[in-house]
Design a protein around this nucleic acid. Structure first.
Lengths: 342, 342
DNA sequence: TTGTAGGCGTTATCAC
DNA sequence: GTGATAACGCCTACAA
């Protein structure tokens, strides 16, 4: 089953013109007479002519396509990011190809390498399991414009758009402390991710500031980013089986937050009385949950639009970009019942 | 800023071979000696050679890209669909380009026409405002494989994957009736959509079956699919200002359901005592809402995978497809507190 | 077993 | 003002 489409050649044949004339007429070149232009344009419209993108790409050595690498689409944070990316991309005439890593390093390498030939530039949020950055560095060195967002690569150059993760975690932890919680656990993705390091630092510093002793057994990392319920379940069991279990949890990813909530619900552990919960999340209805969920919400759509604007700017820049921006977005904090004082 | 990549020509030059030999060696042709093959393949790997997709596409007259047209990405139902689509597409070596219509007819026409040159086939869920189908028919006639899902086009040929909308709405309505509700309102997208007609029919027939009189003023359509809160707000105000307002609502789209919930919450109308609510939704945490939300949940991921499998099958079929399948997925029904009897 | 040449659809360069 | 030609990267008859 093949889709047959009209080409410049077809038009040229019908109108008894050369392909070059048709091409020029369609692009409104000054060299072509108004008469011929009108003839060609009208006919092209009547047969619904559209230039073949592959031919154009081959010729122009660009694809007007952006690649975006994220952990998972079915995650409110990332689907909001994509919404932002798509809106700017479409507006500027770019398509977007999405690659999911499912927090897996090999998949990320694969994705990045595959994308490399199809796109003019890439938006990357690292996977939880990413340890080495060579696959990305190599592309950068060959001139691929890459903008990092959310889970940025600390040690690579390039435009970056991220949240103020330190502040988000610090404020949330402090909020718990103010509400009377002292035994506060931290659950995050693995801390090879800079954002998790930052959030951990925020958590640490809030404890320190309020002279609450650190406890290493209150700090947990989900190697797979809490993608599966089971992963979070194990962490929760660990925490609850401690001699002195925590009274509150700070969760550092959308999936972890919802899976914690699910766990507590399932095991009839009352929130916040038996366990307070506050987490990073971009879900829609958290305020209507029972109890309503306290969240640190990132400006996801904005993150998507800003990152895309920077990327397109870099792609279309005449000279190599040397001066990179790092945009930091302030997260919004919503204190609700799940972290109420007792 | 241009991304320089290695071509077959480069390899040929370095190895003192012709481009055809390199091309054949890379594709493991029987004509090439093992020796040469190894030489070429090893070198290609060492320089990270990837064929240029545009050149391949131009040559093969296909793009190994699928287009999908939906109303909005930031909608749990559609992001689950996309997750399903991506998984099958990636597995079979296809990329996916997403187009959002935001329920607008012109955007849909634009999207479909733009996509037409870039993709080998399309997955389409119609927009709420779509009235004519010429833009789609035209492509079909020129041989573009198109699979309809969710909001299918009743009068066009093609593979179709949808939910059993009639049953979903019938069961939900009957459930409300069993729980003692008689004054039941229906809120949906515009009924030029076949799925809404079907859901309306399910609602109608359940009422009829239980000998509950119809009331036209209980039936409301959101022209823009409830995308904005304000649209749903107006409908709710209409319903509540009736002499005899409804006691329960059946909502027919994810966005409408959540916006109804939001409205009731905001106006301190107790669910279900003052107004029961049940709706089509694929949101994640509905069971933990306060009160927990009764939903009709569609098999979104499956819908995505099945539609994509059909599409790729049609694209890769040697002979024109004449025998179209219509897959009907049974929705899952979760009765919860928001529709409890009083 | 390897090389040469032509073409996929488009645009740019050069001629007329 | 218009037309012929080459080139973008790849593949595939056909030739050698």
């Amino acid at each position: 089953m093949k889709f047959e489409s009209v080409t410049i050649k077809d038009i040229a044949k019908v109108l008894h013109l050369s392909t070059s004339t048709v091409s020029r007429a369609l692009r409104d070149s000054y060299e072509i007479s108004e008469e011929t232009k009108k003839l060609v344009v009208d006919y092209a419209k009547s047969v619904n002519y559209r230039p073949n993108p592959s031919a154009l790409n081959l010729k122009k050595r660009r694809s007007r396509t952006l690649g975006i690498t994220i952990s998972e689409i079915a995650n409110s944070f990332f689907s909001q990011i994509i919404a932002g990316v798509e809106s700017v991309a479409k507006e500027k005439g770019y398509n977007v190809i999405i690659s999911q890593t499912f927090e897996n390093f090999e998949r990320e390498q694969e994705a990045v390498r595959n994308l490399s030939q199809s796109v003019d530039g890439m938006l990357i949020s690292l996977s939880s399991e990413t340890k080495s950055l060579e696959h990305i560095e190599e592309l950068q060195q060959r001139g691929m414009p890459i903008v990092f967002f959310d889970r940025i690569a600390k040690n690579l150059e390039g435009h970056k758009v991220r949240s103020n993760n330190h502040k988000g975690a610090f404020d949330a932890t402090e909020h718990l402390i103010h509400n009377g919680y002292k035994r506060i656990a931290f659950i995050g993705n693995p801390d090879n991710l800079a954002i998790i390091k930052e959030r951990k630092r925020g958590y640490d510093e809030a404890l320190e500031f309020h002279q609450i002793p650190h406890r290493e057994d209150y700090v947990k990392y989900c190697q797979h980013g809490g993608l599966s319920y089971e992963e979070v379940e194990m962490v929760m069991q660990d925490l609850l089986s401690l001699d002195e279990p925590p009274q509150a949890i700070l969760s550092c990813a959308d999936k972890i937050t919802t899976n914690c909530y699910r766990y507590l619900y399932k095991h009839h552990i009352k929130i916040p009385d038996q366990m307070a919960l506050i987490g990073f999340s971009n879900l829609d209805l958290t305020e209507f949950l029972n109890p309503s969920l306290s969240i640190i919400q990132q400006k996801a759509v904005t993150m998507g639009t800003q990152a895309t604007e920077l990327l397109i700017q870099q792609i279309e820049s005449k000279r190599p970009v040397v001066d990179y921006s790092e945009i930091v977005l302030e997260p919004d904090f919503f204190a609700r019942d799940s972290s109420k004082g007792h």
